[in-house]
């Protein structure tokens, strides 16, 4: 027999002067292969059409639907209800500004992050449309892709001890982005320039090593390794700069 699922969902519409933050409870009959995407859509269409949440690709590719699922950040679209208990509590991600109910403003946060870490290839060269492309070893291309797979869902930030305490912490997602560019020979930034971006308490030295990021990443990006490599690199860079100064 199908389970009856109980959903406790955070509700608040900041645009409605009569709305106060509270929890609504809904029940829903579980169906085969039900995901939280299916459940939430059904709740909206059948029980409360004002329910706000972010769902987009429903395939674990776009990163839109991150939320707190029974206290842990995760993607609603690829969370199967069969892996959850009868009672499911859904809250919006922390850190990001609330838009309403389960919907948060990741767009503004990520744009600011991209600007801060200058998330693009820095080069003095200009593109020559007639020329053959620069060569790259395939193994290196695959290594870059490994880090490029990040979908910027925000789960690593929501699960980060430091980010939950200090708003200016850039989070594993930004560190991963920098690691990706350090690896890429097309980016001509020097170690010193990278250091200026993340060699601070807002960056790599703010990381307490709790590694909630690694545990929460739905794409299994090797964040622990990258944080370790960056810490070592930036540590050396700091030491070198100390000597240069003296």
């Amino acid at each position: 027999m199908a389970r009856k699922l109980i959903f406790n969902i955070f509700r608040y519409n900041p645009q409605d002067p009569h709305s106060v933050p509270h929890t609504d409870t809904f029940d829903l009959e579980e169906t085969e292969s039900m995901t939280l995407f299916i459940a939430l859509t059904q709740l909206r269409e059948e029980k409360d059409s004002s329910l706000q949440f972010d769902l987009c690709c429903r395939a674990g590719i776009c990163g839109a639907c991150a939320m707190m699922i029974n206290g842990r950040p995760g993607l609603a679209c690829h969370t199967l209800t069969k892996d959850l208990p009868d009672e499911i509590t859904l809250m919006p991600l922390p850190i990001y500004k609330l838009i309403g109910d389960l919907s948060v403003d990741t767009g503004t946060w990520f744009r600011a992050m991209h600007e801060k870490v200058e998330s693009w290839v820095h080069t003095s060269k200009s593109f020559d449309p007639q020329a053959e492309e620069e060569r790259m070893d395939n193994a290196l291309a695959e290594e870059i892709y490994e880090l490029e797979r990040c979908i910027e869902c925000g789960c690593c930030v929501a699960g980060c001890g430091t980010a939950n305490m200090r708003q200016d912490f850039v989070g594993a997602v930004a560190m991963n982005r920098i690691a990706r560019f350090i690896m890429d020979p097309r980016d001509q930034r020097t170690e010193k320039e990278y250091f200026e971006v993340i060699g601070t308490d807002e960056g790599i030295f703010g990381c307490m090593g709790l590694l909630g990021c690694e545990d929460m990443c739905p794409k299994h990006i090797p964040l622990q390794d990258q944080l370790g490599i960056l810490r070592r690199k930036m540590g050396w860079s700091a030491v070198k700069q100390l000597f240069r100064r003296s």
Binding site: F127, E133, E134, L140, E142, R186
Partner: peptide, 12 residues
């Protein structure tokens, strides 16, 4: 090629 120049890690 322009996308490669901008940073795509195309398989090689």
């Amino acid at each position: 090629r322009e996308m490669a120049f901008w940073g795509i890690p195309w398989n090689r």
